[in-house]
Design a protein around this nucleic acid. Structure first.
Lengths: 153, 153
DNA sequence: CCTTGACCTGAAGTTTGGTTGAGGTTTTAA
DNA sequence: TTAAAACCTCAACCAAACTTCAGGTCAAGG
């Protein structure tokens, strides 16, 4: 044995340990807990003690974030997982399928934009009022409400 | 008086007119001017008067924003355009080609993520320490001087 | 025992891309 | 002429996702 002859298996983790193993900053871990994405119990001295599952949850959070899902939504998704136990394969498949769908939508939106850009690079479209880039009926979910646009010259 | 016939060609535009024609809020126009993305002159009463080109520039700004380019970068790009005259086709091609490149990179990053997600939906990867989604690099904690996940996005 | 180092809390600061509001001036149309 | 509509500035605020800081507690080692 290297270190731990008497170390209990599946020890709980301090916040510093979670930080080191997950790559998150301690402040981010606090933040996620405050936002309800992860939980901890407290020891006698009021220090956080995390179940090891927190590492898996953090991994899920990071994946979801990379797909562009906001934390509030990730939190809601995590709340559908069984409490205090590891997510099952089925849990993970459910979440990841949903996120994959959103990711696909995002990719498709960007791809459409790219195609338009492609088209318009050639034609110098921006000088024309009917350019599809200038009048994006289509792509408004990426950002902003912007419900105007038309206006005869 | 009845508007249509004697209107001077290429009149300058008030901020309200720019707002109506561009679909931006007046506050956003002020904001863009403060950030150096557009310019205006002032009339005798200190009101903004915009060259009509501002509409084309705003169109460019909106396209760039949709590709995910931050305003500061858009501002820098716009500063490479000829001042006080309309961007030429060549100008537009230069900018849009650059932005298209970035857009492509973004799409590719997201596509790679999707492929990983695809792969990992099947295998329940997140329970394994060597999952590519979970982190190509960190896994065994112990000392990651560069605790970054794959690619940032 | 005593000193670090790890941890605690709550508040405030950061960045991006704006919006909202107060208080005052200018333009316009009746 | 006069009232409304449009405009002005500056400051404060919003949301997301965190970080930093101040001031205090807890735990571990020499």
């Amino acid at each position: 044995m290297t270190t731990s002859s008497s170390r209990p298996i599946a020890r709980e983790l301090s916040v510093g340990e979670v930080a080191k193993r997950s790559g998150l900053a301690i402040s981010a871990i606090h933040f996620y807990e405050a936002k309800g994405l992860i939980t901890s119990r407290r020891n006698a001295g009021n220090q956080r003690r995390f179940h090891r599952d927190v590492l898996r949850r953090v991994a899920i959070i990071k994946v979801a974030q990379r797909t562009g899902i906001p934390l509030a939504e990730i939190r809601d998704a995590l709340h559908t997982l069984p409490e205090n136990k590891s997510p099952t394969l089925a849990d993970w498949q459910r979440l990841s399928a949903c996120w994959k769908h959103k990711l696909n939508e995002r990719i498709e939106r960007l791809s459409r934009l790219r195609d338009q850009l492609d088209h318009c690079i050639g034609c110098g479209c921006l000088s024309m009022d009917d350019c599809p880039l200038r009048n994006p009926r289509d792509t408004l979910s990426e950002q902003g409400p912007g419900p105007r646009l038309l206006d005869p010259d």
